[in-house]
C-alpha cells in the first residue's frame, strides 16, 4: 500500500468521514481519492483547492505563515484540509456528527507523510 493510500485509509476510518482525497491545490484536480458514492471528487478538489489557496494567501498576509489545517464548516457537514508537501493537500469531507478532533489529528499526521 502506498503512503497516499495509507493516508486516505486512515482518514476514512474516522467515524463520520464520508471521503478523503489528495488534491493538487493549484490545479484543483484529484490525485487520489477514497469516497462514498454521493461525494463528487472532482467538485471537492476544485472547490477545496481554490479555497485553500485563497486562505493560504490570507494567512500569509496576516503574518501567520503557511496554514497546516483548514476547516470549512457548513450546516450539514464540513470540509477539512491539511496541506502537505509541494502543492498536495489532503482533504476530507465529513458529516455533521463526525469526530472533528480525531479527523483533524489523522489529517495532520497523514498530510505530513504526503510526498
Amino acid at each position: 500500500m502506498t503512503e497516499t493510500q495509507t493516508a486516505l485509509d486512515r482518514v476514512t476510518r474516522v467515524p463520520g468521514v464520508r471521503g478523503a482525497l489528495v488534491i493538487a491545490a493549484a490545479d484543483g484536480l484529484v490525485v487520489a481519492e477514497q469516497l462514498m458514492e454521493d461525494v463528487d471528487g472532482q467538485a471537492v478538489a476544485a472547490l477545496a483547492g481554490s479555497l485553500v489557496l485563497r486562505l493560504a494567501r490570507t494567512a500569509e498576509s496576516a503574518g501567520l505563515g503557511r496554514p497546516r489545517f483548514l476547516h470549512l464548516r457548513g450546516d450539514a457537514g464540513s470540509v477539512l484540509a491539511a496541506p502537505g508537501a509541494d502543492d498536495l493537500v489532503l482533504v476530507a469531507v465529513v458529516g455533521p456528527d463526525a469526530n472533528l478532533g480525531l479527523a483533524r489529528l489523522e489529517l495532520l499526521e497523514a498530510a505530513g507523510r504526503l510526498a
Binding site: G28, Q42, A46
Partner: peptide, 12 residues
Amino acid sequence: ETSVGIVRLFFD
C-alpha cells in the same frame, strides 16, 4: 485567478 479544476467543474 482560477484553476483547471474550477473551469472543468463549471464547464461540465
